[in-house]
Design a protein around this nucleic acid. Sequence first.
RNA 1: GGGUAGGUACCGAAGUGGCCAAACGGGGCGGACUGUAAAUCCGCUGGCUUACGCCUUCAGUGGUUCGAAUCCACUCCUGCCCA
Length: 392
Amino acid sequence: MSRFSEQLSALMQGCAQILSEKELTAKLALGRPLRVKLGVDPTSPDIHLGHTVGLSKLRQFQELGHEAILIIGDFTAMIGDPSGRSATRPHLTHEQVMEHAKTYQEQAFRILDPEKTEIRYNGEWFGKMTFQDVMRLDSRVTLQQMLQREDFRERIDKGQPVRAHEIQYPIMQGWDSVVIKADVELGGTDQLFNILVGRDLQHEEGMHQQVAMMLPILTGLDGVQKMSKSLGNAVGVTESAGEMFGKLMSISDAQMEEYYRLLLHERIPADSHPMEAKKSLAERLTARFHSTAEAGRAREEFELRFSKKDLESADLPSYNPPSDLPRDIITLGVNAFESVLGGKKSKSDLRRLVEGGSVSWKGEKVTDPKAIIPVGEAGVLKLDRRNAVRIG
RNA sequence: GGGUAGGUACCGAAGUGGCCAAACGGGGCGGACUGUAAAUCCGCUGGCUUACGCCUUCAGUGGUUCGAAUCCACUCCUGCCCA
């Protein structure tokens, strides 16, 4: 067999859908490096595991000698992809977007080979277009086409607003493909519509149409919605080993299968205990973004802290309250969150935690919100399920 | 531009003068149980100088009232129908 067919089957692995396999085969058979496009919109400053599904596929193309083009959608991000959205996205300024773009690019290189990646900002072409250009571009598609999208339909049916600039989004993404002359575009299954618009526009320009390679979308930690930072269900690639490990351990057994498949490209070992399987998943993914050693340490720490519930020997952040701070449990808790744990908790939040029986001092449950921790006493203050500090 | 229905806490949604910090559901958080899983049960879910007390909230502003999320006026925003 030729190396094209080997490539083909390797590349097809993990894809949800390819439009079409035949076209992809034909393109591979050309024997030249293909231009493979993946677009990301820097709507938030961090890349998470969901993004890595597409990035890894792009990396695979790179390794096979193809050209990877990473589009940083600095212009499209200002609209926000309406795909799968039930509401208009909040508007971002170009400055905000560019700031995100910087970290995005950096983080994407944790997966991609920087030497072999062509980074393009779509502001490069959209920023130069005149209003006339925009009108000409828009005239190539019909409103009906754009309104076929399920997410628009749904919003219309529910009487929710769809703003005019939102239907601009697929057109822009499609135009990106024309400009960079993409042979293949990668994207999550929710990108199908946008990618097909790219094909239409390429066709109109008399170009060869890009192949659409649809990748499955990773579900977030809640097990329901797609992973997204703004939904708070994401695991960021820059998170600490401990956080990463812990977050991955919190997914449900049912979801583990998906994570194994999409992120490790494996099935769950048949004979392993679900918890062992999950620990192994968490450890391997953590190692991917940190080191094997760090991942191992994260695992040990997790076991110590949560399985053995040994907070005393766990590696907790230490918190030394300022000497003039009142020593009551609530004030200490609020300040501990603020200064070392991160997160904003009000006194009422803390009161609820205390009254709910979540707080303990040196292993003893504290249920009196007025309890005082005397100055000079040292010990572990547990605040909620995953947050505890060492005082003194 | 005309008509009409709306804008309530993270979301959905009740409430149409005092019993409203605001029903109910979802989500989230906490507890018990566990494998920081799932399921189940229970509690919490605006804030506060220390609380059966106070303060700020029901798109915004200004009124009417002893008293307003609820009534009135104007403004802003959204859907639908008509042009």
